[in-house]
C-alpha cells in the first residue's frame, strides 16, 4: 500500500492511493489519511491504482471525509476501478462522497469558491 500527496494550485490536495486496501492496507493508510483530513479542506482521493477495497478501507475514507466536511471542506473520489467502484456503490458511500472519473472535474468539485 502506498500513499502519495500532491499539492495542487488553488489549495487542492490530490492523494494518490495504490495497492490493496484490506485490513493491513487500511492500517497503513489510516494515520496518514487522518493527518491529511485534519489539515486540508479540498481533497481529491485518487483510487485509480487501488486494486482491491474492503469495507475496512471504506471506513478510513469515510472517516477522513467526515473530518474535512466538519471544517466546511470537500472530498471526492477519483477513478476507482470497476470492482472498487462496486464496493463503494454497494455500500452507498457514493451518496456521501461523490465519485468522479475525470481529474479536472474532481478538482473543480472540491475547489473553494473564489
Amino acid at each position: 500500500m502506498s500513499i502519495t500527496i500532491h499539492e495542487l494550485d488553488g489549495g487542492v490536495t490530490r492523494v494518490v492511493l495504490a495497492g490493496r486496501i484490506d485490513i493491513k492496507g487500511a492500517q497503513e493508510i489510516d494515520t496518514p489519511l487522518s493527518v491529511i483530513g485534519g489539515s486540508r479542506r479540498a481533497l481529491v482521493i485518487d483510487l485509480a491504482e487501488v486494486e482491491f477495497l474492503a469495507s475496512i478501507g471504506l471506513r478510513s475514507l469515510v472517516q477522513c471525509a467526515k473530518v474535512v466536511q466538519l471544517k466546511g471542506g470537500k472530498v471526492v473520489l477519483l477513478s476507482p476501478r470497476p470492482v472498487v467502484a462496486e464496493v463503494i456503490q454497494f455500500s452507498g458511500i457514493d451518496e456521501l462522497i461523490p465519485i468522479h472519473d475525470d481529474a479536472d472535474e474532481a478538482i473543480a468539485a472540491v475547489s473553494p469558491a473564489r
Partner: peptide, 22 residues
C-alpha cells in the same frame, strides 16, 4: 441503514452488506 449525510454516518458495519450484494 445508511446515514443520509457524512455528518450523520458512523463509519463501519458495511461488510455484511457487501457479502450479500456480491
Amino acid at each position: 441503514p445508511m446515514a443520509a449525510s457524512l455528518a450523520e454516518v458512523t463509519p463501519g458495519g458495511w461488510g455484511l452488506g457487501l457479502i450479500r450484494k456480491f
